[in-house]
């Protein structure tokens, strides 16, 4: 079947089987920031935004996603400049092997959209579904706090 998705603002037609996950279809479209960490909804490395809500793309049927706005990490940078979360992740040294980083950025993007000034506890609760196998949790938290500040001050 054909599935028409709006990914990062662009209409994309994909050949997909009716049982295909959004993760597999996005990866097939070349959007390889959507990482397959567990294929089980546990790790969050495939997190993307669907109509602004961060979800595990491995547990979403692609056919369900027609007509919705999908954002992957590839859509976060605009006009050649990184999103504040991407900048903050780099500046805070929050990227180790990098595998979980796209999912962390997408989940954090929803958090900061809903809550521009989260406490550390609110950050931890919001990020509870994103695992880092390098066990680096403190620096991503620092980065999210720093990105929140950048966004509040209008810096990217």
């Amino acid at each position: 079947m054909k599935v028409t998705l709006t990914v990062n603002g662009i209409r994309r037609d994909a050949d997909a089987a009716p049982g295909d996950s959004l993760m597999d279809v996005l990866r097939g479209l070349g959007l390889t920031s959507v990482k397959n960490g567990c294929d089980n909804g546990d790790c969050g490395s495939c997190a993307v935004l669907v109509d602004g809500a961060a979800v595990n793309a491995c547990l979403v049927f692609a056919a369900r996603s027609e007509g919705k706005a999908i954002t992957t990490l590839e859509g976060m940078a605009t006009e050649g400049s990184l999103h504040a979360l991407q900048t903050a992740m780099l500046e805070s040294g929050a990227v180790q092997c990098g595998f979980c980083t796209p999912g962390i950025v997408m989940t954090a993007a929803e958090l900061l959209e809903k809550n521009p000034e989260p406490t550390d506890r609110e950050i931890d609760e919001a990020m509870a579904g994103n695992f880092c196998r390098c066990t680096g949790y403190t620096k991503p938290r620092d980065a999210i706090r720093s990105a929140a500040e950048m966004l509040r001050e209008g810096r990217r």
């Binding site: 997190a47 809500a53 961060a54 547990l59 979403v60 989940t107 509870a128 579904g129 994103n130």
Partner: peptide, 12 residues
């Protein structure tokens, strides 16, 4: 609800 699945799962 805060203890049901992860935030990513609760969104779905």
């Amino acid at each position: 609800l805060v203890h049901v699945g992860s935030p990513l799962l609760r969104n779905q």
